[in-house]
Design a protein around this nucleic acid. Structure first.
Length: 711
DNA sequence: CGGGAAAAGCTTTTT
DNA sequence: GCTTTTCCCG
């Protein structure tokens, strides 16, 4: 194995002896490479069989990339290696041990949307007020409890509201059990509990996985940590890779403290720091280091590069969000003439709402762009409808699927009828499907409802019978047409209906593609496809090859890099976000988010802010982000908005923000003065309110002025 | 049942 | 303010 393409720290991590390793990998320090080389090293030099390796990531994309790269490096398939997401691996485990876990063999996975709907149903069934117990909060509560590995009876909160929430949790679990479905968190929790209580299984897996590797460790939550610890046992080797400075998911339960906990729980853990950065210029790294040094309690790390200093970071003070968008678009147009392609440029923002104005500006200039995030393919309503039909074919107990399709497309089964079925299900403790059958046998319904319901039952049964032995994609196609979904969405007018039809057609392709891949043993192709749909978001790679500007939130930019990065909306209240203002912990997470954003940039970084921005329907003046101030001035070239735009500034309202004069002027910078017009900065003296700037104006020659009069 | 009006969100997201 | 969801009535 050739290791001389690795730097000393990377080599140390790759060839480290078996035992516990904590790799603190800074942004752009080649962490994925280290993980891949490490796995290859374990197999080739430590003679560990792939069968004995467990590698965990957070996204399917990372897992797939890792497997592919290890395979191409070793030139052999490593099929027996367990590599995947926490959820994917837990799923694999539970499929193998469904009996021990007390699950039906045909169990299906509930995504967050299904989970929300089911919780709402449970709340209604308990006759609780939706206002007092919002399903969203109940969902949050339930998931938080599960992430702390607490079952309903183990929750210790005892005031009335909490008690009710516990009852909802309990009822929700029962509903899941009845329907034979399991939510995302339960995949992990059930795996953990089973491994904990079943000595034979635990011993078996602890003997099997001699080497564990974990990527993005800073994003693990309490449950994931316990899960790992259980798989690792006392004797196995575990390598965790992470960066405390890039922990940006505290709000969804990630615990940075897990890194410190690791050193305590796995004694003798060797710490390796990867600090050499292969991505950004010296200037960008200096800015990133200065910024993150404001955070407390860091494990400590300082990125450096052999690369050149590069260009200064540009900050732009826009008048408003439109001006900001036009500035960005203008720069993109300039850069496009030079060495950069559109795909080399990314616009990053704190919240999704910011993309609209930027998109409008891009459109106006005909610049192709792509917005990341938003609804994923398998989350689209029409796809979920189709999947619900497939789910009920695979498992008649599946209540969430039943609820979804009982009247979609509409077939004359109203709310009243469905409520009667729910009532029966509740009293007899039956799944909805069987409750419906019971009521039909009892001749409970009016003639009209009776025939509609009988038709529904016949439709599903017929779908099931007629597709037996069919290829998966044929089965999907059959269901799409016979369910009436195609007809239903064909009637929907406008572009929306058309897109939906295209999406449904794509589902047939997806099924076709899937059935050609290997289906795990003992699982029907349909069940395997449904699990795949729940666990993988299916990225549309075709679009990635287009030459277009990339738009995304800072969160979704983690792990990516771009030659040119625009960080838009660098204002107090927006970034850092106002909801994080009063919580020092949250504020530090905002700063880490900014650190992530800055370190995405390879060559050029623009940080823009608007002095006046429309937020939640109100116009507001905001100060530039504190993060801008935390970057040393000598690294930044500040540009202010054009005079032309400033004229439309409303005179009536008093700006809460006065342009600040703190060290933001640079020699050679073009400035504007209300009386003297345009000029160029010759010299700067003093700072703060005392700062004086020497400016040469075209009209009146050279003047020394108080900085705050200049824009 | 479907369309339009009223009301409710409104940070960040993967599985 | 804008967009999405819910509600109500013909």
């Amino acid at each position: 194995m050739i290791l001389n393409s690795l730097n000393p720290a990377q080599q140390e991590a790759v060839v480290a002896p078996l035992g516990h390793q904590l790799v603190l990998a800074g942004a752009g320090s080649g962490k994925t490479r280290v993980l891949i080389y490490r796995i290859a090293w374990l197999i080739e030099h430590e003679h560990i069989s792939p069968f004995n390796i467990l590698a965990v990531t957070f996204t399917n994309k990372a897992a797939n990339e890792m497997r592919t790269r290890v395979e191409s490096m070793l030139n052999v398939p490593v099929k027996s290696m367990w590599i995947g997401t926490f959820h994917g691996l837990s799923h694999r485990f539970l499929r193998a041990h469904w009996q021990e876990a007390g699950l039906p063999q045909a169990f299906q996975i509930l995504d967050s949307d299904d989970q929300f709907r089911l919780i709402r149903r449970v709340i209604h069934a308990m006759n609780l007020d939706e206002e007092r117990f919002p399903p969203k909060e109940a969902q949050w509560f339930i998931n938080a409890q599960k992430e702390e590995a607490r079952e309903p009876h183990q929750v210790e909160l005892r005031d009335f509201t909490a008690q009710t929430l516990i009852q909802i949790y309990q009822a929700y679990q029962e509903a899941c059990q009845r329907a034979g479905v399991i939510d995302f968190t339960d995949l992990l929790l059930k795996t953990y509990k089973l491994l904990l209580s079943n000595d034979t299984l635990r011993q078996h897996y602890q003997e099997r996985f001699r080497c564990l590797l974990v990527d993005e460790f800073q994003d693990t939550n309490t449950l994931q940590y316990s899960w790992l610890k259980l798989f690792a046992g006392e004797n196995n080797s575990i390598m965790i890779v992470g960066d405390d400075d890039q922990s940006i998911y505290g709000w969804r339960g990630a615990r940075i403290e897990n890194i410190q906990r690791f050193s305590k729980d796995f004694p003798g853990a060797n710490i390796i720091r990867l600090e050499q950065n292969y991505r950004s210029t010296g200037t960008i790294l200096k800015a990133a280091n200065a910024l993150i040094s404001q955070n407390s309690g860091r494990l400590g790390k300082n990125l450096w590069t052999e690369d050149q200093e590069g260009e200064l970071i540009t900050s732009y003070a826009a008048f408003n969000e439109t001006d900001e968008a036009f500035f960005i678009v203008n720069r993109i147009r300039d850069l496009r003439q030079g060495e950069f392609a559109l795909r080399d440029m990314a616009i990053l923002y704190r919240s999704n709402a910011q993309s609209r104005v930027i998109e409008e500006a891009l459109m106006q200039f005909g610049i192709p762009y792509r917005v990341y995030g938003g609804l994923r393919y398998f989350d689209r309503a029409e796809i979920k409808d189709a999947l619900a039909y497939l789910r009920i074919i695979a498992n008649r107990h599946d209540d969430p699927a039943f609820e979804r399709i009982i009247n979609t497309p509409t077939r004359g089964i109203g709310d009243k009828t469905v409520n009667a079925i729910r009532e029966q299900a509740k009293t007899a403790n039956q799944p909805l499907w069987y409750a419906l059958i019971t009521l039909l046998e009892k001749k409970f319904f009016s003639a009209r409802a009776d025939s509609a319901l009988a038709n529904f039952v016949n439709l599903i049964n017929a779908m099931d019978e007629k597709t037996v032995g069919m290829d998966l994609h044929k089965q999907v196609e059959y269901v799409l047409y016979s369910s009436g979904l195609i007809e239903h969405y064909r009637k929907e007018k406008g572009e929306k209906g058309l897109t939906r039809l295209e999406n449904l057609e794509e589902l047939v392709n997806a099924a076709h593609q899937f059935s050609q891949e290997a289906v795990p043993d003992e699982m029907s192709p349909l069940a395997a496809f449904l699990a795949y749909a729940a666990l993988e978001s299916k990225d549309d790679q075709a679009e990635a090859y287009d030459d277009s500007v990339q738009l995304m939130t800072l969160h979704s930019a983690k792990g990516l890099e771009f030659p040119v990065v625009f960080l838009a909306g660098c204002e107090e209240e927006l970034f850092p976000h106002y909801l994080s203002m009063n919580d020092p912990k949250a504020m530090e997470e905002e700063r880490r988010l900014c650190y992530v954003g800055v370190t995405r940039a390879m060559k050029k970084l623009f940080m823009t802010y608007a002095e006046l921005r429309r937020m939640h329907g109100k116009e507001a003046y905001h100060r530039p982000s504190r993060f801008l101030r935390e970057i040393p001035v000598e690294l930044v070239d500040e540009v202010r908005f054009r005079t032309k735009v400033s004229r439309v500034q409303p005179v009536a309202s008093t700006p809460a923000y006065k342009p600040q004069a703190q060290g933001r002027f640079r020699i050679g910078q073009d400035v504007h003065h209300r009386v003297f017009g345009e000029g160029t900065v010759l010299d700067v003296e003093g700072d703060g309110d005392e700062m004086k700037v020497k400016v040469r104006f075209g009209s009146v020659g050279t003047k020394v002025l108080i900085a705050s009069y200049l824009t």
